[in-house]
Design a binder for these strands. Structure first.
Lengths: 193, 193
DNA sequence: TGACAATTAGGACGACTGTCCTAACTCTCG
DNA sequence: CGAGAGTTAGGACAGTCGTCCTAATTGTCA
């Protein structure tokens, strides 16, 4: 592990700030202060704010791929899906404060009619395809895709409500219910949804 | 019905713009243009942007109460809950474009650490209490509150995913599933959750 | 050491932000 | 008609935004 470059440090801090304060509400001054560099220095590394957003999305895409890869070491597809579900528990503090980083970014970019909206949604696609793959491994055919989307939606709902009510018990309760749902869809796979 | 006052027209347009573009991304100039009045005229009606936000939230609270009241005419608690679920169908076009107005506003205000965050969450509370009331009428006791929160979360999840993927079929499919879930929780109420 | 590229700091820029002020206008009522 | 309150338009304001420029600094290699 070498020292992170200035560019990498900008991406890292921008990633954090875009998550915690939102893309629109994060200014160059905010990022510069967080990194500890001068404002003018910025345009040597990124040619615009949209350029930083693009780098942040790429960064998140890469981080997601890495995380999904790591989960592949889990023995069974069911355990892999459980790893996904339990992000809600692992990241509960940040989720209660700022929501889901993927959901909130795509939502904000949709309202801004920002060109990067589709790229942000690619992170969702990554999860969806990976989950569908796991459901297929569980014996689901045409159901795999809808099941993946459904699970994605369930976790997004948990994130939104947990953030609105700052309710940790709600997260635990919902995660437990989703695990029951997963049981029902992993032990005796159905041919009809 | 009398002509709407200027104040009411400002609230109405601000409400729309806060929903479609977000609170932070909506400027006074945007609202003034939409209403068709001068910028300076604004501060005769509202003393600050936060003041407009407050009025918009009050407006939404009132509209929600009115809607919930109207649903009370539905014959059974189950039908009332169905009315709630079917907002997702009725408003699908706007939801696919901008998400849920309640969820996206609370999410944004949470990131902004805005004082009005709690007031925005009150709209959620209105739905939660009303839904819990309906579940109690269906014979649920301690389960009523968790069931209400669960249903709220499910619809939020649908809204987020529908907006991210612009997927109308997903909304229909999820609504159908939620209706099945409601069947299971209205025909033979359980004593354990 | 000297030359040259990469990196940095700091400030200028025009546009836009929320806020506030003032002068003009419209309406109502005596 | 004329007075006075309510309402309006338009611009000034200090600050911040994203962007860009230039000069100084650092690092690298002959």
């Amino acid at each position: 592990m070498s020292q992170p470059t200035t560019r990498e440090r900008i991406e890292e801090k921008a990633d954090e700030l875009f998550y915690e304060a939102g893309f629109g509400a994060t200014s160059f001054a905010d990022i510069a202060d967080a990194v500890g560099i001068s404002r003018g220095n910025f345009y040597h590394h990124f040619k615009s704010k949209d350029d930083i957003l693009d780098a942040v999305i790429s960064r998140r895409l890469a981080a997601t791929r890495r995380m999904l890869d790591e989960w592949e070491v889990d023995a069974t597809p069911k355990e892999r899906i459980l790893s996904f579900i339990r992000i809600l528990i692992t990241n509960r503090t940040k989720i209660m404060a700022f929501g889901c980083p993927v959901g909130t970014l795509t939502t904000e970019l949709a309202k801004l009619e920002h060109v990067a909206e589709d790229r942000a949604a690619e992170i969702f696609e990554l999860f969806r395809e990976w989950l569908a793959c796991q459901f297929r491994a569980l014996g689901h055919g045409d159901d795999a895709e809808p099941l993946a989307l459904h699970l994605l939606g369930r976790s997004q709902g948990v994130a939104v409500m947990a953030s609105a009510f700052k309710d940790e018990a709600f997260i635990s309760s919902e995660v437990a219910q989703i695990e029951v749902w997963l049981d029902q869809h992993s032990n005796q796979p159905q041919t009809k949804g």
